[in-house]
């Protein structure tokens, strides 16, 4: 009986271990395959030059440029709003108030809404409603803002990454000890002064983690920008907020599914994927490291 028990136990533990290692193995295989597939094409020149011969050759500079621009504009919108919401939830809202609960639910809902829905919303709200409205009001109906561009794509992406920022910053704010808030208040500081001088500086690392995670998410998401501003190919870099832009993820998607000759451009596709993967991987790794330090500090 005991022996049978022990064998069952070993089998069971073995199965769980196998599952964990299977996941790790797939991650490693994925990384290795993409590194091997992309390493020959990957070069400094690949990163800094324009596509050539109808994207059959050349580099991916405009896609990198567009992605960076996208996440920059996105962060400008998402980070302050996300941080302020986190401050509200931790400093102003009472845990039990209905408003706070509703906001928390809304944040979690935002985090689970499929990214394609954000794309639809960007189209219906930013492009048609706001952009179209701007055109009618200021340009007499001439089409300028009522069509996909980098501004609308970035704002759409900022809605998607808002919960990422909120959750990270909230976690960091909670690691600022209550004793420090009390010390500040006991010295005659007001609530806002305490937040400004003690709480926000104390959660800088969390705001940074949130920003990094949001940037990484924004750099990798494609669905929200499919029809809010990304373009197949542009001969020039975007110079205005009303321009369309190229994007790494979208570039991979187009090259892999709609290119005239998928096989011929395969090395470029792998190299582009490698670039995107490295970018998001390094951002996430940085965030994971900062966050684990933060958690250790909290203990």
């Amino acid at each position: 009986m005991n022996r049978k028990n022990r064998i069952t136990g070993a089998l069971f533990v073995g199965t769980t271990a196998f599952s964990a290692f299977l996941i790790i193995a797939v991650i490693i295989i994925l990384l290795v395959v993409i590194i091997i597939g992309g390493k020959d094409t990957f070069s400094w020149k690949f990163l800094t030059s324009f596509p050539e011969d109808g994207m059959m050759k050349g580099g991916i500079f405009p896609a990198i440029y567009g992605t960076v621009l996208l996440v920059l504009i996105m962060s400008v919108a998402a980070v302050p709003f996300g941080t302020i919401t986190a401050i509200y939830l931790t400093e102003y809202a009472k845990e039990t108030s209905i408003l706070a609960k509703t906001i928390r639910f809304a944040v979690r809902t935002l985090a689970t809404v499929p990214s394609i829905i954000f794309g639809l919303f960007g189209l219906g709200f930013f492009i048609k409603f706001v952009g179209g409205g701007m055109d009618n009001m200021f340009l007499g109906g001439q089409l300028k803002w009522g069509q996909p561009n980098i501004l609308w794509a970035s704002l759409t992406m900022s809605l998607l990454t808002l919960p990422v920022v909120i959750v990270s910053v909230e976690e960091a704010i909670r690691t600022v000890p209550r004793e420090m808030r009390e010390a500040s208040l006991a010295l005659g500081a007001t609530k806002w002064e305490t937040i400004k001088r003690i709480v926000i500086p104390g959660s800088r690392s969390g705001i940074m983690t949130g920003t990094i995670l949001a940037v990484s998410r924004g750099a990798g998401e494609v669905a929200p920008i499919l029809f809010t501003g990304a373009a197949y190919y542009l001969a020039t870099l975007p110079t205005s907020l009303s321009d369309q832009f190229m994007n790494l993820g979208y570039h991979i998607y187009i090259m892999a599914t709609q290119s005239a000759n998928v096989d011929q451009t395969l090395p470029i596709q792998f190299a582009t994927t490698l670039v995107l993967l490295m970018l998001t991987f390094m951002l996430n790794l940085t965030a994971v490291i900062i966050r684990s330090r933060l958690r250790r500090k909290a203990k």
């Binding site: 996941i23 993409i34 998410r217 750099a219 990798g220 993820g249 991979i252 995107l276 998001t280």
Partner: peptide, 12 residues
């Protein structure tokens, strides 16, 4: 490691 997998873009 699994948290990093969560960070892989779905297009990848």
């Amino acid at each position: 490691a699994i948290e990093l997998l969560a960070g892989f873009p779905s297009v990848v």
